[in-house]
Design a protein around this nucleic acid. Structure first.
Lengths: 144, 144
DNA sequence: GCCGAGCGCGTTATGTTATATCATTGATCA
DNA sequence: TGATCAATGATATAACATAACGCGCTCGGC
């Protein structure tokens, strides 16, 4: 048995590997979406040196629901709820990249999956809403 | 026959350039999503030789609503309705890449945009539903 | 006709995102 | 002790996308 290593809280299953912890920490610190290569730059000093290392960790973290991928931006972000196994949507400011995670209730999920035609039995949904956040909206309405 | 009749200025519905026509034709023939480089391979015989040519045409066609991009696959597909300026969703078979375009009614659109929190005023929605199509579902249930 | 502006497009080069593959390490167990 | 497997390290390359420059055509003014 190994000693508990890190991350108090809720994880019922396996623990994170050191690399996974580093990368999750990096994303949580940032609080905003980062590309895999941006993550790589930030964790180089921690000894992570190659893209596959980052992608492996990200894929594992995504399986656990602790990191999500923003498809419309090819970027990754820490789950705002620590961990979630459900479905969620994102609202993304197209100007400043701010991201807000939107948890989807059961009903909402069902409704979204129900949009799929009979020919395709739906499994996962990717929903990203782009727009302008308040400050960027103001900045644009009255430029310098 | 191409009629090279282009003109800068007010006309709201300009016609397609030769390259745009070729690439739209290619996508329509395919009837399924293609990567930009797959398109490039297919139109090389028509004289298109470089990625930027393809991306330029794709971007124009997307602005016109005649081509959509599948974010979750980095692929492009001809609009199933010829042209649409509205919102739409996609159902995608994760096994065979079959794509079905789902037109979203006004109500559905409004509901989706309404999911955005107050902080972000929503503009566009990206909704992609992945799952298994009938034949792939069967194939998986009873493998050869 | 001549000229310059605008535009579509060709071309080169490079940037960015992601993965296939093999090597190394370290734990487990007959 | 040595076989074996899982995880990670490292190399290389594949796949996706765009920046930047330049050419040639058509259009409009003169």
């Amino acid at each position: 048995m190994t000693s508990p290593h890190h991350h108090a809280g809720g994880s019922p299953a396996r623990k994170l590997s050191p690399n996974q912890s580093k990368i999750l920490g990096c994303l949580r610190e940032a609080g905003e979406p980062m590309s895999a290569y941006a993550i790589l730059d930030r964790v180089r000093k921690s000894g992570i040196a190659h893209p596959p290392t980052v992608y492996r960790a990200l894929n594992d973290l995504m399986k656990r629901g602790m990191v999500h991928r923003l498809e419309s931006r090819s970027a990754f972000i820490a789950c705002g709820h620590g961990e979630c196994d459900g479905r969620f949507a994102f609202a993304i400011c197209r100007a400043c990249d701010k991201v807000i995670e939107i948890p989807l209730g059961e009903k909402e999920q069902a409704r979204l999956l129900g949009l799929a035609p009979a020919e395709i039995s739906p499994e996962t949904v990717t929903l990203e809403i782009a727009g302008l956040c308040e400050s960027c909206g103001l900045a644009q309405a009255s430029p310098a």
